[in-house]
Nucleic acid binder design. Structure first.
Lengths: 345, 345
DNA sequence: GATTAGCACTCTGACTAAGCGAGTGCTAAC
DNA sequence: GTTAGCACTCGCTTAGTCAGAGTGCTAATC
């Protein structure tokens, strides 16, 4: 049961109008604004059919029509066309990203900022997941009599460290020995892998003196690994939604805000999404059934994968937002090729 | 022009009632609930005097009275008594803080969480300011042909590092040499000091080979120092305010949320506040003139100073909140004495 | 002189009714 | 199949009413 050409035109017109004005659109205004060559009455008939098919809804009898999630889905899948960014936006992006090029996290945060500034919606960025990262080396360093630093370095240049206080004294030699020992054991293995295999067993304890030091260090090592696996979430433009009519009710606004109160939950959800530009509309989401969510992935050094996202009402300029996100993630992936990459020797 | 004993009693009663119910309180309800031995009419007269003195206001002619900022100030300064925490809260606190004792940032974040859970307000925590931190050593480590890690370790065990890509090749020896070189130059100096003195000049370049390596490393070094000076801000319970009647208007709620959108500004403001428990009420704040803000400081190793804070409407249980914060910061300072301290050998 | 009872007055908030405007749905004509 | 016309529906706004809470003042009382 396909839609006729005219039905598609009308649907598109309704979506455009509703996205713009956030108000149910009536047959008359469609007929006036869009030159479809038919009268309001005809449009009313088509609207009625579209409603029956589930593409439109009706807040109440004497109101105009509102696009349903199904309509937006159709729009995103087949109707929408790629948009070119304005020169202004392009310049804004390149300026901002250039400025922070060598600071990894700052660049990612700036990307999220740009996203919320340009779309006027809420955006976020996730630093790349590191579960595929492999260990390059591990080093222990002295701070004072009882305090040492444990440092884990990944092969993509990721670094994480913890300061830990030992219950036993140590010597420089024992630290060096244990560092080597651990590096040999774990080098080349992924963080996930190391964390999962119950490593306490793994490390060879050929030398007696190391045994107690190792015992002291292991919990901190595990903690540091976990820490290294954590991705950072940067949220931007949360208050933007207050300017949208759909969030003029305090309850709606609260629900929206509360989504992001549980950062961990949200981060997990976002990590689970497929790669590339992914759009989920309204009901397709587990929570936030009245929002749409668009995510896209960028790559670091062609390997590690991070995410950008935009959240807003289902009434959203899908064409502009997806185009922008595609542009931004390409730009990011490009930026992150050289500095961390191994492809310019 | 001091207040009489009875006026103080009435003021206290009004504050109690208003803090509890968020509604203007009338003379009759005071007379009924609090046994002051006088009739509503007398209370009305006193109220009228209190209003003249600026302790009460009047939303409109036929409404009850509402305490002014001045009244809360009086209450906080002289009327309020220290409250003991409930056994339940004490247990909650010790459980939660114990659980994360060895993870510094996690502990601080948990303190903020506790604060918002117990008070049902918005809370935050700042990791300690590190401008007084002194440098212990600096180390450069190889990752691959062109990539190295720069690591700065402070004498309190603070560690920060950056991965940087060099434009020139390097040798292990040159890294070691530069590490030593930099450590000798900066050891014992505060981060602030090092960052301010235009260090490019400072490092001795006795050996020619180091010169270009040094030139490559310096920008990253400065960036890392800056990074090390940054404090982290953890906000908790932002959505709690949606449950308060004073934020049932969307505009109020938006203003509140927007305060925290500029994290940097907010952080700076909070760092400027005096040590100890500090209460600022309504108009005493630069922004958020309809909020009260309570901050308290905790200490790490008796030296570095971090902050906890609570933000809510001026209608707030000042006695409970300040008591809680005192308890929490003492607890934190206690926790942070041993692990990072040097006082148990 | 301080306190209190009594009462007129004020203001809010909830409720109701009327009127307006936007938009539909149906019917009959084209 | 398309369109004009028209009755009808529904929500929103405005005005009006009423009850309730509370004050402020006055005059009586302790």
């Amino acid at each position: 049961m396909d839609l006729s050409e005219r039905q598609l035109q009308i649907l598109q017109a309704i979506i455009n109008d509703y996205v713009e004005n956030a108000e149910p659109v009536g047959s008359r205004s469609i007929a006036k604004k869009y030159d479809l060559g038919v009268s309001p009455a005809t449009i009313r008939n088509e609207m009625s059919d579209l409603e029956e098919m589930g593409y439109l809804t009706h807040p109440h009898t004497s109101a105009g029509r509102v696009p349903s999630d199904k309509a937006y889905r159709l729009y995103v899948n087949t109707l929408m066309k790629k948009k070119n960014l304005s020169a202004r936006d392009k310049r804004l992006i390149s300026d901002r990203l250039q400025a922070s090029r060598d600071e990894f996290d700052a660049t990612i945060r700036h990307a999220a900022e740009l996203l919320s500034e340009i779309t006027h919606l809420t955006s976020f960025a996730l630093t790349p997941a590191t579960n595929e990262e492999t260990i390059a080396f591990i080093r222990l360093m002295p701070v004072d009599e009882r305090t040492i630093i444990l440092m884990i370095v990944g092969e993509s240049g990721n670094v994480t460290n913890t300061t830990m206080r030992l219950k036993v004294p140590y010597t420089q030699e024992s630290l060096d020995l244990l560092s080597k020992n651990m590096t040999v054991t774990y080098k080349g293995r992924t963080l996930d892998d190391v964390l999962k295999s119950h490593i306490i067993e793994d490390v060879g304890t050929d030398i007696e003196a190391l045994s107690s030091l190792r015992g002291n260090v292991m919990p901190g090592f595990l903690r540091t690994l976990e820490d290294m696996l954590n991705v950072n979430l940067y949220m931007e433009g949360m208050t933007n939604i207050f300017n949208l009519p759909e969030y003029s009710s305090i309850d709606r606004a609260r629900d929206f805000m509360q989504l992001f109160a549980q950062k961990d939950w949200f981060t997990q959800k976002m990590l689970q999404r497929a790669d590339g530009v992914v759009v989920t509309i309204g009901d397709e989401n587990t929570k936030m059934k009245d929002c749409s969510l668009i995510t896209a992935t960028y790559h670091v050094d062609g390997k590690l994968v991070g995410k950008l996202g935009v959240i807003g009402p289902t009434r959203m300029k899908y064409d502009e937002v997806t185009s922008l996100m595609e542009y931004l993630t390409n730009n990011l992936s490009e930026s992150f090729r050289l500095p961390d990459g191994k492809d310019d020797e």
